[in-house]
């Protein structure tokens, strides 16, 4: 024990001064148990472990119908998201938007954009209703998510969502995503000899932020000081 402590101290002393953010020996040396932290009990973990994966791993016990979900939704969700998921004001729209993703006015909703049931279920479970998070019972949670799916014509009016019916739900945009490909599709940006002189014709101003005029008023001096 004392030997390994002195080894770590030696390693720290040998590490070069941190001019560069060199990875020092801390965390890079062989794993060591510092005897810090308590074992997490199954009950403690169960209270906090609320995430749900696309394959349904993590989904809680319980069930909820579209019909029951409608009541909860109208009471707890519609004020922001609209009665039909159309959104009130600038709050997120939950329904419609089908076929808009390739347009210049894409409408990203649960139905048009979310790839998995879990993406919406996990979110509602942890963050909704806004300002009253983690207040829904599991049955209410299943019900309200079932209703949002129904608003998007993903399940019918009679649907009951639960662990057992989880796999029946297929989201329309599941295949709408692909892994970050910037290193291939934007390979041209790796250009360590960019043009320095006479690069193309003279440029013209094609757009003005001041004309659009959506900048908040602030008290920064905007006027130039030159007569």
């Amino acid at each position: 024990m004392s030997k390994s402590v002195s080894l770590i101290v030696a390693a720290l002393l040998l590490a070069s001064p941190a001019m560069a953010q060199d990875k020092t020996q801390v965390g890079k040396s062989p794993p060591r148990n510092y005897g810090v932290g308590q074992v997490a009990t199954p009950a403690q973990i169960a209270g906090w472990d609320i995430d749900v994966r696309p394959d349904g791993v993590g989904a809680p016990a319980g069930k909820g119908s579209v019909k029951d979900g409608e009541k909860i939704y109208l009471e707890k969700c519609a004020a922001c998201h609209g009665e039909f998921g159309e959104s009130a004001g600038r709050w997120p729209q939950l329904a419609q938007g089908k076929g808009t993703l390739a347009s210049h006015d894409p409408v990203k909703t649960v139905g048009s954009y979310f790839p998995y049931l879990s993406s919406v279920f996990d979110y509602v479970r942890r963050a909704m209703p806004f300002g009253d998070a983690q207040s829904l019972s599991n049955d209410e949670l299943y019900a309200v998510v079932a209703f949002v799916l129904n608003l998007n014509d993903i399940v019918d009016d009679k649907f009951v969502l639960s662990k057992d019916t989880w796999a029946q739900v297929r989201m329309p945009n599941e295949s709408g995503f692909y892994d970050d490909d910037r290193e291939k599709s934007e390979k041209a940006f790796w250009n360590s000899r960019p043009c320095m002189k006479d690069c193309g014709p003279p440029v013209k101003i094609t757009g003005h932020a001041a004309v659009i005029d959506v900048t908040p008023e602030d008290k920064t001096p905007r006027k130039g000081g030159v007569e």
Partner: peptide, 19 residues
């Protein structure tokens, strides 16, 4: 996990509708 913050948000929608 494909959480909401890495699907509905923080995905980059391209011209062809894929993200």
């Amino acid at each position: 996990w494909y959480t909401r913050e890495e699907t509905s948000k923080y995905t980059d929608l391209m011209e062809n509708g894929k993200a």
